[in-house]
């Protein structure tokens, strides 16, 4: 029925971007729980990939495996490969600290450090070896500008980051990640703790960011995925049921499961 409705609409041919991260047959286990099953998925350069699916479907786990945040969970085990720049990120010999600078992450709850706005951005920079007041100032300002926060905070950089509103805090967290000039930014439900106005600002921000970085966004919000994502992957019980360009996924899903989820019949 859906196909009949859509047949005479012509879609613009999606621009196929280069693949920056190629995940091949990834399996993640937490002790006895097989959280991610045989997932193969590309993350495309300078585009937004949305990961959708019901709670507990493995999408967050998948995201956290990419920059090895799962290493911190006792009993977590990964198999398969995540190819990035010709290397397998799951390789034990990888310098995870360097990796996390290139593949940044933003979490669900805004989590700025209890420090000044300036220090929130400058501290990781200093640790990354960037010295000189002028240089630090420039990067702080630039990343705040990129995160569309500069105008709101430029007069109070020395104030505590915790005095900002929730939406501002989340944009600060994005700015903080951007300051390290990552190639890829992973966002784990970045707007689910925010009000609609703040969420809309973050969405606009993500759309503007994809000119510079590749983004992967886990979201519970289907409309959000439809609004911002170029590609969408639908996770269900640890597997990727369907992966496609968002415009196709949300209009002509191949699988019934996807269609049911997108139409809110379960979740």
């Amino acid at each position: 029925m859906l196909t009949q409705l859509k047949e005479n609409i012509v879609y613009p041919e999606p621009k196929k971007q280069n693949i920056i991260i190629e995940v091949n047959e990834l399996n993640v286990y937490y002790k006895n729980n097989h959280a991610v099953k045989n997932v193969s998925l590309p993350i495309r350069e300078r585009s937004i990939t949305a990961l959708i699916g019901p709670s507990g479907c493995g999408k967050s786990t998948f995201l956290r495996t990419i920059n090895r945040m799962n290493d911190l969970i006792p009993g977590a085990k990964c198999q398969g490969e995540i190819m990035y720049d010709g290397i397998n990120l799951l390789d034990k010999k990888i310098d995870v600290v360097a990796l996390r600078k290139e593949i940044g992450m933003v979490f669900q709850k805004p989590n700025p450090f209890p420090k000044s706005i300036y220090e929130n951005i400058a501290m990781p920079l200093k640790f990354a070896g960037i010295r000189g007041k002028k240089r630090l100032n420039d990067i702080v300002e630039e990343s705040l500008y990129q995160a569309a926060l500069l105008d709101e905070v430029k007069d109070r950089l020395s104030q505590s980051a915790l005095s900002l509103s929730g939406g501002q805090q989340q944009r600060l967290c994005i700015a903080r990640a951007l300051a390290l000039k990552p190639k890829v930014l992973l966002l784990d439900e970045p707007t689910s703790a925010l009000d609609p106005v703040s969420s809309a600002k973050i969405e606009d921000l993500l759309l503007s960011l994809k000119k510079q970085v590749s983004l992967a966004v886990v979201t519970h919000n289907m409309q959000q995925a439809a609004r911002i994502a170029d590609q969408t992957a639908f996770f269900y019980e640890g597997e990727v049921v369907e992966y496609n360009d968002t415009s196709i996924m949300f209009t002509k899903p191949v699988y019934k499961k996807t269609e049911d989820y997108i139409n809110g019949r379960f979740g």
């Binding site: 920059n67 945040m69 911190l72 600290v97 360097a98 996390r100 600078k101 940044g104 992450m105 979490f107 709850k109 989590n111 450090f113 990781p124 640790f127 990354a128 967290c173 903080r176 990640a177 390290l180």
Partner: peptide, 14 residues
Amino acid sequence: PQDQRLSGLALGLT
């Protein structure tokens, strides 16, 4: 909070 640890590590800190 645990997310302070995570965000520190996610920003490339040891």
